[in-house]
Structure formats: C-alpha cells, structure tokens
C-alpha cells in the first residue's frame, strides 16, 4: 500500500465517520430539541410537573387562565373544560377539570396532549397532576371528569396576563383487541 492510498484511506475513514456522526446528530436533534424547548418555552411544552412546595399566593396579580379542549381527527368524544377561564393568583394551587364522554358503542382510549400559549409562559406553569399524564379509557357511553392541578410560578413575567392551556385529545384506541396499551402502539393506516 503506497503513501497515497494510505492517505486516501485515512481521509475516507474520517469523512465516513463524519457522515455517520452527522446521521447520529440528526437523531440527537430530537432530545436536543426538547432541551431547547424547555429553555425557551418553544411550542408551549410544559415540562414542570410533579409535586410542588406550597407557598403563599401573590394576591396582587390576577392571571386569567383559559382552557381549551380540541378533538383531533376522527375523535368522537365530547371533550370540554368545565370552565372556560379561571382567575388565578401566582403561587396559588388550583384545581380544574375537563369533561369527557365517549358517545360511541365501544371502549376507547385517549391521550390528551397539552400545549400552552404564550410560549414564554410555559415554563412558569407547573402541573402538580394532570389527566394528560396518563391515557384515559372510557367504556361505551361512559362519562368522566378529568382533573388537573396546577400552580403558576410567581416569577411569571409581568407582561403576561393571560395564559391559554389547550388539550388536544387523540384517539389511541388499538385497532386490534385491547391487549397492552402503550403510547407507541398507535396504528393508523394512511388515508
């Protein structure tokens, strides 16, 4: 093997490695994007969840929190917030609920996906518990009130007066007989 071949081989190796690295980087963008969203509040993703230390509410500020329920695609459930808006003081823990009813004649499973706007507010909305943490199953014609417990951080920027929290309900009922339901099991035939 002469010097040129060696040189070529080393270069190819480096470049192929670079290519593979970039292929990996493409996939690494997925978690990187989540981190990026958490920092910037991009897309209104809520990442603050779980128990929170109780603190005194800031009664000098009233934040209007708006709730929206959206059905995705062919999702036939009735789905709406019990109240359209509530007024909340920052630091105050508040309970809310969404109403859901399965009008069909079969058992269905749903997953609610939350989103917040303005996206700058997302990182200050803390969800202690939420029906969106789990999948929700309803038997035929069953109704349910699905609870949500949240706190707005006192550090919420002063120019934000209204926060809108939307839930989109996705039908994730397995097409085949219900065995184990995982989020990843969604089956959807194209058109």
């Amino acid at each position: 093997m002469d010097a040129l071949q060696r040189k070529n081989r080393r270069l190819i190796l480096q470049l192929v490695l670079g290519g593979l690295l970039m292929f990996g980087f493409g996939f690494a963008l997925v978690p990187l994007y989540d981190v990026f969203c958490r920092i910037t509040g991009l897309n209104g993703k809520i990442t603050n969840t779980g128990p929170v230390a109780v603190e005194e509410a800031d009664s000098s500020r009233d934040i209007r929190v708006q709730f929206i329920g959206v059905n995705n695609e062919a999702m036939p459930w009735e789905f709406r917030p019990l109240l359209n808006t509530v007024s909340v003081n920052p630091g105050e823990m508040r309970q809310m609920a969404f109403f859901a009813r399965n009008p069909t004649a079969r058992r269905m499973v749903a997953q609610a996906i939350p989103s917040v706007t303005p996206s700058e507010a997302a990182q200050y909305l803390h969800k202690v518990s939420c029906f969106c943490f789990d999948q929700q199953a309803l038997e035929a014609d069953e109704r349910m009130e699905m609870p949500l417990l949240f706190v707005i951080d006192k550090k919420l920027p002063p120019d934000i007066h209204t926060i809108t929290l939307s839930y989109t309900l996705f039908d994730i009922t397995p097409v085949l007989p219900v065995a184990q339901i995982k989020t990843a099991d969604i089956q959807r035939s194209p058109l």
Binding site: G24, G26, I172, T183, I186, P190
Partner: peptide, 29 residues
C-alpha cells in the same frame, strides 16, 4: 457530508413513524 446524513436521519424517522410505531413527529405519542 454534514447535512445529507441529517436528511437521511429525518426520512428514517419518518419511516419509523409510519411503519414501526414510533412517535418522532406524531403529537399523540
């Protein structure tokens, strides 16, 4: 060399979403 692999990556994710039940781009999952 820097970006064609990223394109390959993104179509691979699509392929996995369509056929292997992953949820890279599917809000439901």
């Amino acid at each position: 060399i820097a970006v064609m692999p990223v394109l390959a990556g993104v179509v691979t994710m699509m392929l996995m979403d369509i056929h292997f039940g992953t949820s890279f781009f599917n809000a439901a999952g």
